[in-house]
């Protein structure tokens, strides 16, 4: 594996005095696509909040490219780490204005207008993600899939080295799910952007990521390649649900089949 971009050492954190995450350890190498998986309420979003410093760790440290994240300014972070949240607020903006906001970390003090650089970077990414035809539309007019694309485009204009995506495919149909993740893959392979995402759909996580981190009640249960992590024993223990794990004939990656109660009774 290549050089480390993110290193999490003994991280504990939570809200108020109660810790939700306990002693989390993992590393992410440059060029990885990592997926954080786990049941609802296992602490995935809390982990993201710690990574973006919205929450302060109660113990442990996070290093980004060898530097303690806690010692970076928010502005420095915004130039290196971009986040696409689950809830995308539309505010009172057009798509173009919204995307242009990604350039805010690069504004000099007392600079009010975007430079021609800012404009050409925005244009380039809008063309790449294919949202430039939406530019004049209001953020509240566009569909959920388009909104997700627009939010990713905004994150790209920050020119990050690490992209954090919080459930980028939830509420989307399969066309858009695959569309978004293909784009993520392309960003990873062509632009070298490291990606960490929270994904609920285990099959998508398995198909698109080279590393999975499975979280269960605030601790890392298992981590490694999809083949290592997605096993029926692990899934049945962490999710408390009976599943069948098979292999995708094209990619050789594991995929998960669910079993209904009726069939459970009939066959098991």
């Amino acid at each position: 594996m290549g050089e480390l971009i993110l290193e999490i050492n003994g991280l504990s954190c939570g809200y108020g005095t109660e810790d939700i995450l306990h002693d989390i350890n993992f590393t992410v190498s440059k060029g990885d696509i990592v997926s954080i998986i786990g049941p609802n309420g296992s602490g995935k979003t809390t982990l993201f909040r710690a990574l973006t410093r919205i929450l302060k760790p109660s113990a442990g440290k996070i290093f980004f490219q060898g530097k303690d994240l806690g010692h970076m300014t928010y502005r420095e972070m915004a130039k290196k780490i971009a986040v696409v949240s689950q809830e995308i607020e539309s505010a009172w903006l057009t798509v173009e204005e919204y995307i242009m906001m990604g350039r805010i970390p690069y504004f000099e003090r007392y600079q009010f207008f975007e430079t021609s650089d800012d404009i050409s970077i925005t244009e380039r990414y809008m063309k790449m993600t294919g949202v430039d035809h939406l530019r004049k539309k209001s953020m509240s007019e566009i569909s959920g899939g388009e909104r997700q694309l627009v939010a990713i485009t905004k994150a790209l204009t920050q020119e990050p080295e690490l992209l954090l995506l919080d459930e980028p495919t939830s509420h989307l149909d399969i066309t858009h799910q695959v569309g978004i993740l293909d784009l993520v893959k392309k960003l990873n392979s062509e632009y070298g952007i490291t990606v960490i995402m929270i994904v609920h759909d285990l099959n998508l996580a398995s198909e698109y990521c080279n590393k999975l981190i499975m979280i269960s009640s605030g601790s890392v249960y298992n981590q490694g390649t999809p083949q290592d992590v997605i096993t029926y024993e692990a899934l049945e223990e962490v999710y408390n649900t009976v599943v069948i794990v098979e292999k995708n004939p094209l990619s050789d990656k594991p995929y998960v089949l669910l079993v209904s109660e009726e069939d459970r009774k009939r066959f098991l």
Binding site: M77, A78, S85, E87, E89, Y98
Partner: peptide, 16 residues
């Protein structure tokens, strides 16, 4: 402008 997107989002854009 950034705050219009929500406080967490503004933080992600490097705003204190």
């Amino acid at each position: 402008n950034a705050l219009a997107l929500g406080e967490e989002e503004a933080l992600h854009l490097g705003i204190s």
